Amino acid sequence: MSIQHFRVALIPFFAAFCLPVFAHPETLVKVKDAEDQLGARVGYIELDLNSGKILESFRPEERFPMMSTFKVLLCGAVLSRVDAGQEQLGRRIHYSQNDLVKYSPVTEKHLTDGMTVRELCSAAITMSDNTAANLLLTTIGGPKELTAFLHNMGDHVTRLDRWEPELNEAIPNDERDTTMPAAMATTLRKLLTGELLTLASRQQLIDWMEADKVAGPLLRSALPAGWFIADKSGASERGSRGIIAALGPDGKPSRIVVIYTTGSQATMDERNRQIAEIGASLIKHW
Rank of each mutant, 00 (worst) to 15 (best):
residue 269 D to C: 10
residue 169 E to N: 11
residue 38 L to Q: 06
residue 236 S to T: 09
residue 4 Q to T: 14
residue 138 T to Y: 13
residue 151 H to Q: 14
residue 4 Q to V: 13
residue 65 P to L: 05
residue 239 G to T: 08
residue 169 E to K: 05
residue 240 S to Q: 07
residue 225 A to Y: 11
residue 87 E to S: 04
residue 86 Q to R: 15
residue 238 R to K: 13
residue 222 A to M: 10
residue 92 R to A: 09
residue 214 V to D: 04
residue 168 N to Q: 04
residue 276 A to V: 09
residue 79 L to W: 02
residue 129 D to Y: 00
residue 172 P to W: 09
residue 255 R to G: 02
residue 59 R to T: 10
residue 10 L to C: 15
residue 44 Y to W: 02
residue 119 E to Q: 11
residue 275 I to C: 03
residue 221 S to W: 07
residue 78 V to Y: 02
residue 40 A to P: 03
residue 186 T to Q: 13
residue 38 L to F: 06
residue 56 E to V: 05
residue 206 I to L: 15
residue 129 D to L: 00
residue 93 I to C: 05
residue 284 K to L: 11
residue 277 E to A: 12
residue 276 A to T: 07
residue 108 E to R: 15
residue 219 L to F: 08
residue 50 N to T: 15
residue 286 W to A: 00
residue 66 M to G: 00
residue 246 A to L: 14
residue 210 E to T: 09
residue 268 M to N: 06
residue 198 T to V: 07
residue 178 T to V: 02
residue 60 P to R: 09
residue 229 I to T: 01
residue 127 M to C: 10
residue 112 T to R: 12
residue 269 D to S: 10
residue 224 P to T: 04
residue 149 F to A: 07
residue 194 G to R: 07
residue 250 D to R: 10
residue 238 R to I: 12
residue 186 T to Y: 14
residue 215 A to T: 08
residue 134 N to G: 00
residue 7 R to L: 09
residue 254 S to A: 13
residue 219 L to S: 02
residue 272 N to I: 03
residue 217 P to I: 06
residue 120 L to V: 03
residue 44 Y to L: 08
residue 74 L to A: 04
residue 90 G to D: 14
residue 204 Q to S: 09
residue 57 S to I: 05
residue 218 L to F: 02
residue 137 L to E: 02
residue 145 E to C: 13
residue 230 A to S: 04
residue 244 I to N: 01
residue 221 S to M: 09
residue 267 T to K: 09
residue 144 K to Q: 14
residue 65 P to C: 04
residue 96 S to T: 15
residue 268 M to E: 06
residue 275 I to Y: 03
residue 169 E to G: 07
residue 236 S to R: 03
residue 243 I to P: 01
residue 164 E to I: 03
residue 161 D to G: 01
residue 179 T to Y: 00
residue 193 T to L: 11
residue 126 T to V: 08
residue 94 H to T: 15
residue 186 T to E: 14
residue 92 R to C: 07
residue 197 L to Q: 03
residue 107 T to I: 05
residue 237 E to Q: 08
residue 175 E to W: 09
residue 262 T to K: 10
residue 226 G to F: 04
residue 263 G to R: 08
residue 213 K to G: 09
residue 33 D to G: 12
residue 10 L to G: 10
residue 281 S to K: 11
residue 261 T to M: 15
residue 186 T to N: 13
residue 63 R to A: 03
residue 121 C to S: 04
residue 215 A to D: 04
residue 86 Q to N: 15
residue 170 A to L: 09
residue 41 R to A: 08
residue 247 L to G: 03
residue 137 L to I: 07
residue 198 T to A: 10
residue 274 Q to S: 12
residue 250 D to S: 13
residue 130 N to R: 00
residue 201 S to N: 07
residue 68 S to N: 03
residue 65 P to H: 08
residue 161 D to A: 03
residue 65 P to A: 06
residue 186 T to M: 15
residue 177 D to H: 01
residue 171 I to R: 14
residue 88 Q to D: 14
residue 243 I to N: 01
residue 167 L to Q: 03
residue 245 A to G: 06
residue 8 V to A: 12
residue 47 L to V: 15
residue 119 E to D: 13
residue 244 I to M: 05
residue 247 L to P: 01
residue 212 D to A: 03
residue 143 P to T: 04
residue 56 E to Q: 08
residue 13 F to A: 14
residue 75 C to P: 00
residue 75 C to I: 10
residue 241 R to P: 01
residue 38 L to I: 08
residue 29 V to W: 12
residue 268 M to Y: 07
residue 15 A to G: 15
residue 173 N to S: 11
residue 255 R to A: 02
residue 56 E to G: 09
residue 220 R to K: 04
residue 186 T to R: 14
residue 7 R to P: 15
residue 200 A to T: 12
residue 82 V to R: 06
residue 250 D to V: 08
residue 105 P to R: 05
